[in-house]
Write a protein that binds this DNA or RNA. Structure first.
Lengths: 98, 98
DNA sequence: TCCTCTGTAACGCGCGACGCGACAGCAGGT
DNA sequence: ACCTGCTGTCGCGTCGCGCGTTACAGAGGA
């Protein structure tokens, strides 16, 4: 991101932070990977550089998913793996294709 | 969810909570909409009833997105809406189709 | 009667994102 | 030399929120 959007817009970190109505440090934390991209930030970024908020969030969420999955491995093994019947699943609109 | 997966599995709230290795109250809060579906919970639910974690998370995230968008409306208006050049956007893999 | 389910409420903990202040280093302009 | 603005990083305090814990009260079956 620092390598793409900032030079792409020809902006400094400080200036970008001001435009995003956020502190310098906040932007730094994100650039350094020490903070996650919040729903808030995603919306700010969308308005800020025209890149879909979905893009930023999908990135973030997929990362969290990976991380949490390994953290939760021991707990997950203790959960019985049932299978909800297909008719019910489709009724919820979760037919594996969403 | 209470209307679909619980009766679909023929389980009580208490029993489901036990299976998920979570407190009753935690499940209640989710069923009542007083708590969000965490990445953790999504993974537990996936193992628990076979419904993709993506399904639960997408739901949750879209909701948050809507909510945050209106909350942030005033702030967003103060953010200059720039447009990152397409070549850079595609280089990031955010070509609007992701 | 006792047990298990149900719902709800209040308290406290821990984590994570954020703002604020302060530091030091490095340009550039007066 | 001085001031200004950028850079990165540190620590502290706050706030929101998901979660566990405890405790309440009501409904229904053995």
């Amino acid at each position: 991101m620092r390598e793409h959007v900032l030079p792409g817009l020809n902006l400094s970190v400080s200036q970008a932070a001001r435009d995003l109505v956020v502190t310098r440090q906040t932007l730094h934390r994100i650039l350094a990977g020490n903070a996650a991209i919040t729903t808030e930030m995603a919306l700010r970024l969308e308005k800020f550089c025209g890149v879909s908020s979905q893009f930023w969030l999908d990135r973030q969420h997929q990362y969290e998913l990976q991380r949490t999955k390994s953290d939760l491995a021991s707990v997950l093994s203790r959960i019985p793996s049932r299978q909800l019947v297909d008719t019910v699943v489709r009724k919820m609109g979760a037919s594996d294709a969403e």
